[in-house]
Amino acid sequence: GPIILQTYRVIADYNKGSKYQLNLKEGEQVDIVEKSTNGWWFCQCESRRGWVPASYLEPLEGPDETEEQEPNYAGELFVTTKAYTAEQDDELTLQEGETIEVIHKLLEGWWVIRKGEQTGHYPSMFLRKSGEIRAA
């Protein structure tokens, strides 16, 4: 089908972490052709193609226009597929194979999760829905 381009504005400079990513300059506009739920979006500009972090982009139409889901305080059961050690004080440290509840699926790919009494951010790419068989 046709590729729908959506234009976003870069909110801060970003230096790419691999050859398949792009450097970003604050204020420039980028066209996005694919949005991965893990927070990496694919940018296709005139001469540049590569992955960029959604967390460094805002919609051109203004912050009112959002595709983000509302938080679900009841929580949705997920299992961690990889351990992660918190680097910021609003993140959680977990081991592989822990069951947690997802409260808010943020487009930036860092979801708000709950584990017992604790709430914090965790990379969505290290989570899979509880009860689903992991792809081989």
């Binding site: 909110i11 801060a12 970003y14 972490g17 691999s18 398949y20 990513q21 991965s36 893990n38 927070g39 990496w40 694919f42 193609r49 590569g50 992955w51 972090p53 959604a54 967390s55 460094y56 992660y84 910021q88 609003d90 930036e108 790919g109 860092w110 951010h121 990379p123 790419m125 290290f126």
Partner: peptide, 22 residues
Amino acid sequence: SMKEPPSNPPPRPPAELRRKRQ
């Protein structure tokens, strides 16, 4: 490859933006 997103978590939003959201 170019077709697959990076396998490491993306960066958190810039600190100024995180503060603004709270």
